[in-house]
Structures are given as structure tokens and as C-alpha cells.
């Protein structure tokens, strides 16, 4: 018994593990809340595009010696708004606009970095995530940003819901549809950027969509979906960090794979909607 408690407590005696845990839990919880809208609107692609686009801003900030996350956030939000603008104005499909812009911004990042001679590993932590190397300042920045995003979602829940569900009816009711759509895109942009520290550019899309999709299988309404998604996301970070600690593997990969595992558990066993559950109720073929 004592051994088991040691097993559970051991990782958290280390300060960098505690820091990583706080940041990862905050990020994955808020990512699931925002991610619920992302998957319901079929915008998973944008969750992949914005972190890539932020790389352009990170590179610029790196060259100018500014705050890398601020640079990334500005690039992600600008890209998100430009995507919205192009697909609203020209008759270009949403995902085409996304494809054009995010690769452009990512390429700009590579272009800028390729001119640098002092190619630091700093930048690699953005690509693959570096949750265990995070500073207390970054932990608090991340947590506060997550709290602000959550507050905005709670305050404007009614508007975001209506616009996401039925934009033309929302417009007919006099709601500021364009503002709500751009606002949601900007929130997705900021969420992905704060997720970069935890899991990196390549894997951040998983934090947005996997816990939210798991929750979708388990719930019937949007508020519980966001809440369950946040819990699944937080739990994935928690379990993922244990796995990283004991198996000595990449924490970002462990977090993402834990979330993937939860998704498949729900996919198989979810009440009513799980694969096995549905099987049980298929009536036997009459002989």
C-alpha cells in the first residue's frame, strides 16, 4: 500500500513535474471547451492550421528578440481572422482558405529561421512541446490565459452557441454574427498557442479535438459536453505525465496517446452510442 502511494506521489516531488502538470491540465481543459465548438462546426483542420501558422509569428519574435508566445499568438489570431475574412468575402471554401494561409505562414517561419545562424533548441520545443521545461512564469501565463478564455466562453455562451448552431437565424435575431465568428476563431488561435508549450505544434490539434470528441460520445447537450471534455483532457494530462515519468517517454506524446486511448474506450463502451452497446441491441436474426 505504501509502495502504491509512493508510486502515485513520487512524480510530484519534483518541481518541474508539478509545473508541467498545472500547465498541461489548464491547457487541455480549456482546449476541450473550445474544441467542442471546433468539432461541432467541423473545423478540426483549423485546429491543426493555427498552431502551424503561429510558427511564422514565433520566428519573427525570435529574430526580433521579443516574446515568442506573444508572436505566435498574434500570428495565429491574424491568420484566424484572415481565414474568416477570405472565406466570407470570396467564394473560396473555408478549408481552402485555411490551407493557403497556414502553409504560407508556416513557410514564412521556416524562411526566417533558415537565415538564422544561432539555431537554438528553443524553437524545437515549440515543434514538439516541452511541458517539463516550462517556467513558473509560463505556467501562470498559461493558466491565466486559460481562465480568461473560459470566462469569455461563459459570458458569451449564448451568442457563441446561437451563431454556431444557426448563423442565419442568429443574424435575423440581431446578434453580431461576424463578431462572434471572428471571436471564436481568435479564441481557437489563442488556445492553440498556449497549447504549444505542452504538446507542440504537431500535436496540439489532438488536445482540441480528441477529449471533446470523447465527450461528444458521452453527453447529449453542449454544456455537459464541454465539462466532460475538460475532465477527459485534464485526466489525459495527468495520466500522460505518469506514463512519461515511469516509462521515460516524451510527455507530449504520452498525453496525446492517453487522450486517444480514452477516445477509443468511449467509442467502444459509451452508453447507448458505443460500438459494443449498439451491438447488444441488434435483434438476433430470426432463424
Amino acid at each position: 500500500m505504501a509502495e502504491f502511494i509512493d508510486f502515485l506521489g513520487d512524480p510530484w516531488t519534483l518541481e518541474f513535474m508539478r509545473r508541467g502538470l498545472i500547465a498541461a491540465v489548464a491547457v487541455s481543459a480549456i482546449a476541450a471547451v473550445i474544441g467542442s465548438f471546433v468539432i461541432l462546426k467541423g473545423m478540426a483542420f483549423i485546429g491543426d492550421a493555427l498552431p502551424h501558422a503561429s510558427f511564422g509569428g514565433i520566428a519573427v519574435a525570435f529574430v526580433l528578440g521579443g516574446n515568442l508566445y506573444l508572436g505566435g499568438a498574434i500570428a495565429a489570431v491574424l491568420t484566424a481572422i484572415l481565414i474568416g475574412f477570405i472565406s466570407r468575402r470570396a467564394s473560396i471554401k473555408y478549408d481552402t482558405a485555411i490551407g493557403i494561409l497556414f502553409v504560407g505562414a508556416f513557410a514564412a517561419g521556416i524562411l526566417i529561421i533558415s537565415r538564422q545562424t544561432n539555431y537554438t533548441p528553443d524553437l524545437f520545443s515549440f515543434v514538439f512541446g516541452n511541458v517539463l521545461g516550462i517556467s513558473w512564469t509560463d505556467v501562470w501565463t498559461t493558466t491565466i490565459a486559460a481562465a480568461v478564455i473560459l470566462l469569455l466562453v461563459v459570458l458569451f455562451y449564448k451568442e457563441i452557441l446561437f451563431v454556431a448552431y444557426d448563423p442565419s437565424m442568429a443574424a435575423a435575431s440581431g446578434l453580431p454574427v461576424a463578431a462572434a465568428q471572428y471571436g471564436l476563431l481568435a479564441l481557437i488561435g489563442v488556445t492553440t498557442v498556449i497549447g504549444l508549450q505542452t504538446v507542440g505544434i504537431v500535436l496540439v490539434v489532438a488536445l482540441l479535438i480528441t477529449p471533446a470528441a470523447t465527450a461528444q460520445l458521452l453527453t447529449r447537450r453542449l454544456p455537459p459536453m464541454m465539462a466532460v471534455g475538460a475532465v477527459v483532457g485534464a485526466l489525459s494530462s495527468f495520466v500522460g505525465l505518469y506514463i512519461a515519468y515511469y516509462a521515460n517517454v516524451s510527455p507530449s506524446a504520452a498525453i496525446v496517446l492517453t487522450a486517444t486511448g480514452f477516445f477509443f474506450l468511449a467509442f467502444l463502451f459509451a452508453p447507448r452510442r458505443g460500438l459494443l452497446w449498439q451491438r447488444r441491441f441488434v435483434p438476433a436474426k430470426p432463424a
Partner: peptide, 27 residues
């Protein structure tokens, strides 16, 4: 034009009819 797969209940949808009368930030 409506997204029927959205996780909202019938009552949620009908309540949206009230939103034009509620100001911003009001529930």
C-alpha cells in the same frame, strides 16, 4: 440551413427565439 447534428435539445433551440430580447451577457 440548420445543423441538425448539434447537441442541443428542442427546448434549447426554442429558447434561442428569446435571445433577440435578451441583451448581451444576459441569460
Amino acid at each position: 440551413q440548420v445543423d441538425w447534428s448539434f447537441p442541443v435539445t428542442v427546448l434549447d433551440v426554442v429558447l434561442m427565439g428569446r435571445y433577440s430580447r435578451l441583451g448581451p451577457l444576459r441569460r
